[in-house]
Design a protein around this nucleic acid. Structure first.
Lengths: 160, 160
DNA sequence: GCTCAGCAATTGATAGGTCAGCAATTGATA
DNA sequence: TATCAATTGCTGACCTATCAATTGCTGAGC
């Protein structure tokens, strides 16, 4: 039998806190959702979820010049993380690097034709999974509340 | 000037889909929230967020026998991921491995006194950050809706 | 009892991130 | 104009997850 420490009780109480539970739920749901999408995307389109997010950003406004820095900020990655991600995407022909005309330090990234084609296919797959596990399970009246709340959380995180 | 592909339009439309936006919001908010907690926990308590989650699980019901398998399932990690995580936690004295009496294949994990002490401190830090970025930004009426929705999503993911 | 399908944990190889530090470039300012 | 802090992307070292293969143990069917 183990020695009983008076911290045990306090620790158990802390571990049962509803805050801990609710927050854990968010993290777990998001993690698992991303894993699921990632797996499907890899199998069906041979790209990772992160690559998919790059393609979303690049295809969003055709004609817009997007630098690696911008990509890093938008995807919440470090600049070295983006460098390597773009490296991989470039070697499989999804994107292309173009020197920026205005600022010779920075590099613009654009989707290739192949990148756009893959993106279209991936978007369909993505929509299917998101519909099934993200939209369908939630009561219709709660969906907008949830996304609204997430928006507020995101804003709070961005402000500081 | 770049050749104009008729896919551009379709791709742009797909990239602007509200589903893509909403889902992205969940992933981004969760990722950033976890990063923030992780940073604070590392600085204040010298543990990672994942280690914190292990401690939550271990301190939750003192006396319960928790195997590595169970931890892996509860934290959504692979068994090899858990093996290495417990390795690291063991070397810094947060947990202890104990051979399972009933089944010699499996290994039970328990928090050390030090582990519990660190956990108590970490829980306080955690609560502070969660309160600030997860609870405070959300309108009071929406909080339960949001966590309820996340619960449903989690259930849908667990069922399949 | 004996065998063998299956599970738990571990280990080796690999993927894909982080961080620290570098060279090139820019733009503000003395 | 010469200088210098700030910024961009790149690279090396490292961290931590995954998958695949391996080992030891269990329990069901014969």
């Amino acid at each position: 039998m183990e020695t009983w420490n008076r911290d045990d009780d306090e620790a158990a109480r802390a571990a049962h806190s509803p805050l801990v539970h609710d927050f854990g739920l968010l993290i777990k749901a998001a993690t698992r959702l991303e894993q699921r999408i990632d797996t499907v995307l890899r199998r069906e389109c041979a790209i990772s979820h992160t690559m998919f997010e790059v393609l979303i950003r690049l295809c969003r406004d055709p004609g817009e010049e997007v630098s690696q820095r911008r990509l890093a900020d938008d995807l919440t990655l470090t600049s070295s993380g983006i460098t390597r991600l773009i490296d991989r995407m470039e070697t499989v022909g999804l994107v292309r690097r173009v020197p920026a005309p205005e600022d010779r330090r920075s590099v613009l990234v654009e989707a290739t034709d192949r990148g756009r084609t893959v993106f279209l296919r991936a978007a369909a797959v993505h929509a299917e999974v998101v519909e099934k596990y993200f939209v369908a399970p939630v009561a219709p009246g709660d969906y907008r509340r949830m996304t609204g709340a997430l928006g507020e959380i995101w804003k709070a995180l961005s402000d500081t």
